[in-house]
């Protein structure tokens, strides 16, 4: 059994890489992929602590998070395609119509 600290550190690293991607990129597709990385980091934490506590609640929650991430990607890709259709680009700094 690997120590739990390794998995928590891996999850923190994955989450911060995803956050780095969101903060530094302007492509909407890169936003989506970085959010996927962050969701995976959260699920790694859930599964690691499920094993740590000896209960399966974390694994079932991870299953739900996976399903929700799939739904989020479906809607996100719809939004990206509409963005591309209306603006000709998926740079998230271009659509400023709703910006106050």
């Amino acid at each position: 059994m690997m120590a739990i600290e390794g998995y928590v550190l891996l999850s923190a690293g994955l989450f911060c890489i995803g956050l780095f991607g969101i903060l530094t990129r302007r492509n909407a597709l890169m936003f989506l992929m970085a959010v996927e990385l962050m969701v995976n980091a959260a699920v790694i934490n859930l599964v690691a602590f499920a094993l740590y506590h000896g209960t399966l609640t974390g694994q079932v929650f991870g299953l739900f998070v996976l399903g929700l991430a799939a739904a989020e990607v479906a809607i996100g890709l719809g939004i990206i395609l509409v963005l591309y259709r209306n603006f000709g680009t998926i740079d998230v700094s271009v659509p400023t119509t709703m910006r106050w």
């Binding site: 399903g67 799939a70 739904a71 809607i75 719809g78 395609l81």
Partner: peptide, 17 residues
């Protein structure tokens, strides 16, 4: 609830597309 949310996501992506 997750099943309902997935259905809603399917409908929403169809509406968007």
């Amino acid at each position: 609830l997750i099943a309902v949310v997935l259905d809603a996501a399917l409908d929403a992506s169809l509406v968007l597309a």
